[in-house]
Design a protein around this nucleic acid. Structure first.
Length: 278
DNA sequence: ACCCAGGAAATTC
DNA sequence: GAATTTCATGGG
């Protein structure tokens, strides 16, 4: 993989196993929007970029080589060989092999841990379209304006000083107090997100579940999409249906060390084939 | 009006 | 303790 820097963008050559829509619009991140030409605009780590894929070249506009090395290389999880992993996990079950084949361009993003925590608190009993709206308003109201009309995800320090009523403009309903509790516990250090990268998995779960509004599923999503614990296997309503219908004899433990990647293949495959569950 | 949405807390049995 | 209800909000 080679990254060449130009005036206001970089070109990353040698990119494989990446489809922007499959990766950025598959319900793991809520801050990317697709443009008419297939490029995506998004903000992560307080940087606004436009990404565009052409063959094996990924163009990142409004960026530079340093940001690629420090942010985007890991954000897109380029250190993992997804082709190899797909081959490996396809041996587990023929239906998983089909799901993986269906969207081989899915990658697990390495998002900001606190953002992943908050967005999946917001996700509970909610739909992806409305989640995006709430997240957008959260950033506009309380995030730093990094450029004209573009806002970073708010910090826990900032949110820890708010009340649930301050979040009323988000229209997040009962989730407001959960967000405040998350901000306060992360800000005070009572919950240590970084420690969850290396803790025993069950302990990491428990650490996150100290937060009111964080149960097993939100903890698993935070661990998978924010802390790169790719053994995580979040089970939401879609995954419950998929497991019952497609993998009736299996449990999360049967999907191995890359269970999180398998989960994303299955989640996406199920959402694209709702007729399977009628 | 009714049901559901990348669930979890609160209540009831 | 396990099963059920409630929690805001918006779209179909």
């Amino acid at each position: 993989m080679v990254c060449n820097e130009f005036e206001n963008y970089v070109c990353v050559d040698g990119v494989t196993d990446l489809d922007l829509r499959q990766t950025l619009d598959c319900g793991q991140s809520f801050r990317w929007t697709e443009n008419a030409d297939g490029s995506f605009d998004g903000i992560a780590f307080a940087k606004k970029v436009r990404v565009k894929l052409a063959g094996n070249k990924l163009y990142i506009e409004n960026s530079n080589k340093a940001d690629f090395e420090n942010i985007w290389k890991s954000y897109f999880d380029f250190d993992l060989d997804y082709g190899k992993i797909r081959t490996e996990i396809s041996k587990i079950h023929p239906v998983l092999a089909e799901a993986a084949q269906y969207a081989p361009g899915i990658r697990i993003l390495q998002q900001e841990p606190y953002e992943a925590l908050c967005t999946f608190i917001i996700s509970q009993n909610n739909n992806i379209k409305r989640i995006k709206g709430i997240v957008q308003r959260l950033c506009e109201c309380f995030g730093e304006e990094i450029s004209e009309g573009n806002f970073a995800f708010p910090t826990p320090q900032k949110m820890a000083n708010l009340t649930a009523d301050d979040l009323a403009p988000l229209r997040a309903g009962f989730r407001n107090r959960y967000l405040i509790d998350a901000a306060q516990k992360v800000n005070s250090g009572e919950v240590d997100l970084e420690k969850c990268r290396t803790l025993d998995y069950e302990q990491a779960r428990k650490e996150l579940m100290k937060i009111t509004g964080v149960g097993v599923k939100v903890a698993d999503c935070t661990l998978l999409f924010g802390l790169h614990r790719i053994e995580a296997f979040p089970v939401d309503v879609w995954m419950k249906r998929a497991m019952a219908k497609l993998f009736p004899t299996m449990t999360a433990n049967d999907f191995g060390e890359y269970a999180g990647i398998a989960q994303q293949y299955i989640f996406h495959y199920s959402r694209m084939h709702p007729e399977l569950f009628e």
